[in-house]
């Protein structure tokens, strides 16, 4: 018996009893956008997804939000959509990092400025295993090691009541 489950497995287990409906084909969205937002991004990531033959999509619903999942270059990426229709968080976990910056939407520039500041303080090198980056409106954390990378990004002001950062995983 496995002593520990993967983050993905834990997520699936956690949400399994909460699924109200399951359907595919939800449009891609990004942080701060609605479910049908930003066609350009959708096309961009659709291209990424198309490169992965093992892609899958799943949708899960929670009392305060629903979750879309897609696979980008083999890495499951989940988007957290509030009941009012705003994406407030994204999360990923897999064997390598993913190109998540397009999913940051209008917060991307703010994040990248904060990343550069973080890098200036903690320069790039092989030993650092993760980064936790805060800016005015967005929190981004990512890290891991060969074969096991994960991360998430969220906008605290958009999170539904009762939802905490550790829910976004």
């Amino acid at each position: 018996m496995k002593l520990v489950t993967s983050p993905l497995q834990r997520l699936v287990l956690y949400l399994a009893g909460l699924i109200l409906n399951l359907h595919s084909g939800l449009a891609h969205a990004h942080l701060g956008g609605g479910i049908d937002s930003i066609e350009a991004d959708r096309k961009f990531l659709k291209g990424e997804i198309a490169q992965n033959s093992a892609q899958k999509k799943a949708a899960m619903t929670h009392a305060q939000y629903s979750v879309q999942e897609m696979v980008v270059d083999g890495v499951p990426v989940r988007e957290y959509l509030s009941n009012s229709g705003v994406v407030f968080g994204i999360a990923w976990a897999g064997r390598h990092q993913v190109n998540f910056t397009p999913l940051l939407g209008s917060y991307r520039a703010e994040y990248e400025t904060a990343f550069q500041a973080h890098r200036a303080r903690y320069p790039l090198h092989h030993g650092l295993k993760s980064r936790s980056i805060s800016s005015g409106n967005i929190q981004v954390e990512f890290g891991g090691h060969m074969g096991s990378m994960r991360g998430h990004a969220y906008v605290p002001s958009l999170m539904p009541p009762g939802v905490i950062a550790s829910d976004i995983k």
Partner: peptide, 15 residues
């Protein structure tokens, strides 16, 4: 300090 441990699961890296 593993910085992911706050809200994402962190690993123990025995370097």
């Amino acid at each position: 300090v593993e910085s992911l441990a706050g809200s994402l699961s962190g690993s123990v890296d025995l370097g």
